[in-house]
């Protein structure tokens, strides 16, 4: 499956590379779009030294830790949210007559490596923040774990977004609130949000396990909302649970697909 994915992605890359000027221009500009989120954090900290008790370096750490898995998903699976577009154009049928999973084909459809710059940017910010923070080296093992957790959570979110679009053909934009909204939310310490919202993204939609709970462990900080210490390590439990839910929803979506048109 991974092999098929990369073979498909490579074909799209070759097609894009046929126009090198566009390719590099889009790479740079896509980086600029991602950089505006970073710029917002920097402007905020040009006005204050601490946001809800978190320093600039700590916020940048959380930003990097959320953005690394998010941008990887943006690169590799974000085209899943074009399901409603494909349904409207009648192009979904063609994915269903090929001998590969519809999920895999939709995820890789129009793959564009121009988004890779964002991944690099996120990684650079994360590494810089880790270096600047003087963290306990014994806790850094959590970094790859939380990145993997984040990948599974954001991939599941996009899968749910795609699955929801089988029903929401006329209102595809709703899902952005959860995918891009999920990234917007996790860029900042959850300490800035209301208690109910944080409960929701901890126990219902487990966004807190992308970077907040494990991040608190890496930063060596207590949760301002007072959740117990063992919660820091529950990401690898919450993420697969969400993935299972997403997989079931996706199956339901495909099975209930009503091909329209002739």
């Amino acid at each position: 499956m991974v092999r098929t994915y990369f073979l498909l992605a490579w074909t799209w890359t070759r097609a894009a590379a046929a126009y090198p000027v566009s390719f590099w221009l889009m790479t740079v500009l896509s980086l600029a779009v991602a950089a505006t989120d970073l710029a917002v954090i920097l402007v905020v900290f040009a006005n204050t030294t601490s946001l809800a008790g978190f320093s600039r370096e700590e916020v940048l750490f959380l930003y990097g830790a959320a953005s690394l898995p998010f941008t990887l998903c943006d690169l590799f699976v974000s085209n899943l949210d074009r399901v409603s577009r494909h349904i409207k154009d009648g192009t979904l049928d063609t994915f269903l007559i090929r001998p590969a999973g519809a999920w895999l084909q939709l995820a890789t459809d129009r793959f564009t490596p121009t988004r890779a710059g964002r991944v690099v940017q996120a990684a650079v910010v994360l590494v810089w923040a880790v270096a600047a923070l003087d963290l306990d080296p014994g806790r850094l093992w959590m970094l790859p774990v939380m990145t993997a957790t984040g990948l599974v959570i954001f991939t599941s979110l996009w899968t749910l977004a795609g699955a929801a679009q089988f029903a929401l053909t006329d209102a595809p934009e709703v899902v952005n609130a959860f995918t891009y909204g999920g990234h917007q939310l996790t860029q900042y310490p959850l300490a800035i949000y209301g208690r109910d919202l944080v409960r929701g993204v901890t126990y219902v939609l487990p966004l807190a396990f992308v970077n907040w709970q494990p991040g608190l462990y890496v930063l060596g900080r207590a949760d301002p909302f007072g959740t117990p210490e063992f919660m820091r390590f529950l990401g690898p439990v919450a993420a697969p649970a969400l993935a299972l839910l997403a997989a079931l929803a996706w199956r339901q979506g495909v099975r209930h697909y009503r091909s329209t048109g002739s």
Binding site: G90, T91, D93, T94, I97, R98, P99, A100, G101, G261, S262
Partner: peptide, 16 residues
């Protein structure tokens, strides 16, 4: 997907 390996499908109205 197993079936897709054994049948060919053409839609006149839209390309695959």
């Amino acid at each position: 997907t197993a079936l897709a390996r054994r049948i060919g499908v053409v839609f006149g109205q839209r390309t695959t």
